[in-house]
Amino acid sequence: MYFFAIDLTQTTIDGLLFGSTYALVAIGFTLIWGLLRILNLAHGVTVMVGMFAGMLSASVAGLPFYVGIVIAMAAGGFVGFLIDRICYRPLRNAHELVPMIATLGFWILIEEVFIKIYSHFWFRDYVAFPNPFDGMGIDIGQIRLRGDYIVTLAVAALLVIALYILIYRTRLGLAMRMIAEDHDIGNLMGVPVGKVLTAAFLLSAAYGGAAGYLLGMTANLAGPYAGSQAVVKGLFSMILGGAGSIPGAIVGGLSLGVLELLSSFLFSFSYRDAIAMLALFVVLIVRPQGIAGKRLPDRI
């Protein structure tokens, strides 16, 4: 019973800390969903590219963590720029399903090409991702907070604060909030909507890149399928928390982290995903707008 209480606490804390990576991925989905009502399925590519840019910066170039994460965000951001130019801009006047399918195509194409290139360079399923925080941690009684998980949560928190400042304290943020309500409002107020959307794609993708770095670092591994896995977790977090709401993405991501580990701990490993799905189902029945979603059309 003593161990059970300790392990329950430990598992919950691990879930919260690890869930912050899911939250970062979900924020990326949320920004684009909020502004465009498009599920950007290519978002996973930004996670994968961020992960590999981070891995290369750390293992090949030997750059420290804080530089690596900036590089990962820049690399992810570049992918976001491509998604905007290839999947969204040329198709912006088409039905909203069309750019969504384009992002699906982009995802498959880039992932398949990337896997081919990857397999050419590495004779491996995974490559090592140096983790400078491995072995570090803070002990509070019997509970151990993993160093790399603390760093993950800290980075995620910093990025969330930065995002809030951007949205609520800057001109770009004001423009995004107008566009999230209605593109015409932006147009009528003189906002260059296309440029703001490009900025949103860049921003969302940079967050994906950061998530990629953190996911790679905490697992000590980088693998070419990381993007696909992130898409599932990120979408799930977004819907669970409340589609299109940034607090929702954060709550959804953290909840998913806790939910996954707790259901492994309390019930069953093999039904972990099923239990998470069931929880989503129940949440959506009770609160169709998600845990933190608002009924008001507050989109970002």
Partner: peptide
């Protein structure tokens, strides 16, 4: 075409974008 989630003052500031 106002932004319902923004305050009155913020909506006015949109005009001065």
């Amino acid at each position: 075409k106002l932004v319902p989630s923004m305050s009155v003052e913020e909506n006015l500031m949109c005009g001065a974008y």
